[in-house]
């Protein structure tokens, strides 16, 4: 499974997006407010999930802001952190 596919599966399972399948999530669409419509509680859960599934530790929520723009942004963020 590629990274973006894995991210979508994780989001659906852990954020309880019960009525969605991975193919319903568009890579470039916003995750927060619009698009998927995630909120502040999802944001902190996502920070934890980055730690749990990818070993990435975010020092502050601000650090994560660019990553949370879309699936594309999230995948790019993870790849950059894992290569560092």
């Amino acid at each position: 499974m590629d990274l973006k596919e894995k991210l979508k599966t994780i989001l659906i399972a852990e954020l309880n997006l019960e009525d969605m399948r991975p193919e319903d999530i568009v890579d470039a669409d916003p995750l927060f407010v619009e698009g998927l419509g995630l909120d502040s509680l999802d944001a902190v859960e996502l920070v934890m999930l980055l730690q749990k599934h990818f070993g990435i530790e975010l020092k502050s929520m601000e650090d994560g802001r660019p990553a949370f723009a879309s699936i594309n942004a999230l995948a790019a963020f993870i790849e950059a952190r894992q290569q560092a």
Partner: peptide
């Protein structure tokens, strides 16, 4: 682990 406590 502690750092993976689920806030939700």
């Amino acid at each position: 682990g502690d750092a993976c406590t689920s806030p939700i």
